[in-house]
């Protein structure tokens, strides 16, 4: 287990087949995209902190990234220590 800012993922253990983000972000974090394995899938709520976000499914195939908006959701903000360690 690692304690840190989820925004940065876990570079040392990457890449990952599946990434599940359980807090809302204003954009899809580039570090998590980088850590997603080819053929991998990530789900992440993206949007405003309060009102609602969309749960977005991100697929990576042959370095091509496809997003799919699933459902509107409400999550707490994606945050952590703010340090990349």
């Amino acid at each position: 287990m690692k304690i840190g800012d989820g925004y940065y993922g876990w570079e040392e253990k990457a890449p990952f087949d599946r990434i599940i983000v359980t807090a809302a972000a204003g954009h899809i974090p580039p570090p998590l995209l980088k850590q997603l394995k080819d053929g991998g899938i990530m789900i992440i709520p993206v949007g405003s902190f309060l009102f609602f976000q969309y749960l977005i499914l991100v697929k990576k195939n042959n370095s091509k990234i496809i997003t799919e908006k699933l459902i509107p959701v409400r999550f707490v903000p994606l945050t952590g220590s703010g340090n990349n360690d």
Partner: peptide, 13 residues
């Protein structure tokens, strides 16, 4: 912890 940016390409790493 607050990072916000206009609709960013997923190509941006």
């Amino acid at each position: 912890s607050f990072r916000i940016t206009p609709c960013l390409s997923l190509k941006f790493t």
